[in-house]
Design a protein around this nucleic acid. Sequence first.
DNA 1: ACAAAAGTGTTCGCAATACACCCATGG
DNA 2: CCATGGGTGTATTGCGAACACTTTTGT
Lengths: 220, 220
Amino acid sequence: MQTHFTIDCVILTFDEGQLKILLAERNEYPYKDWWALPGYFVNKYEEMEDAVARILLEMTGLKDIYMDQLAAFAGVKRHPEGRILTVAYMALVQMDEVKNKISSGTAYMRQLKWFPVTELPDLAFDHKEIIELSLDRLKKSVNYSTTPYELLPAKFTLTQLQQVYEALLNKQLDKRNFRKKINNLGYLKELNEFQKGVSYRAAKLYSFDKKKFQKTFGQE
Amino acid sequence: MQTHFTIDCVILTFDEGQLKILLAERNEYPYKDWWALPGYFVNKYEEMEDAVARILLEMTGLKDIYMDQLAAFAGVKRHPEGRILTVAYMALVQMDEVKNKISSGTAYMRQLKWFPVTELPDLAFDHKEIIELSLDRLKKSVNYSTTPYELLPAKFTLTQLQQVYEALLNKQLDKRNFRKKINNLGYLKELNEFQKGVSYRAAKLYSFDKKKFQKTFGQE
DNA sequence: ACAAAAGTGTTCGCAATACACCCATGG
DNA sequence: CCATGGGTGTATTGCGAACACTTTTGT
């Protein structure tokens, strides 16, 4: 009547025009040497939310990141020792904020690496399925949530925003239509600042006004 | 590192113009005499999906019903014996098909009863939260899924369909606009049959063409 | 001057909304 | 003949989709 209980973390970011996911190379059986989602066991007297934060920190070095529950996976045959129930959580992070903080503080994995979601390696357990579910969920959330802005730095160009949309929706968008739509959203602030360090016309920077978003959407 | 593991079932139907949920009166501590979602423990070597079907059958007498995973709930303090992780599943059923089959085959609960979701009793554990999550999820699915038709008998009137939409969305809809929209969906079949036993003009019956729905929506 | 990406408007069709009356039936 | 719900159309508005050229900047 009891089961082992783990948390797995789907950590996504946007980098080099692509959605990327953070994977760990396992250093333990089963699936030694395979790539897998960062995850570990929940402690006996630990609240699930606390476990999520702890495991995220131990496995990746990241903290203070909001994680959303995806689903529970509980195949009896997932692991030779018997059922391991895992609850998958998903987080969106900004590459700039995170890239120097990533570190695996555990011997249970050998290294961490970002993979474009379009070029995933073979994955341990049912982790491929978990990732696909998370991408599906994200796709549905693009137009109703803060999803795109969680993947971008605080100041971003409209082209970057469009690339995020395109990566999430997995299709190309028309530039003029996209910008028209974005203009009507009402929760983007046009800054008087421009992109730097590019060898072509610098784009204007925008920021996301979370308060306005919540007012117009009534929470989310 | 191990946890108790249960399944809880959110079973919804549409009856007397209202969304209703099937609840069980507990006959065991903790929360003896409280109303709760039908649910029970998963066996050690049992796949989660099998457990869902078994528990649904044992607790309610229902079988061959598709259940969708909602989420996992795992508060350490939910139960005096320590953590009980529960995975909540949701099903939509048609009252006509189901009303004579409902029976609790377990001493662990005293009776089963349908409650309008707008008039819930006090609930055991965090079951209120689970129900609210399921209603949220349903609301989002109304326009993109077969949700409304799973709650209705095979033949239904447009007014019934509108009532289902209204109950799910929790707001009133305009009759003419609703019917126009429904007409454009393309996956409803107008039958040459009429409502019976009403003391006013009988409404035409319609049926849901699942194949057409899947063709136009590409699965769901 | 060239390469690269920024930025910008119009037209069309569809879908959502608002809104009120007559019709058919059973009792 | 009356009560009850069934059934119907039009005008307006906003949004999504299609579509191509000029401007700015750094090198």
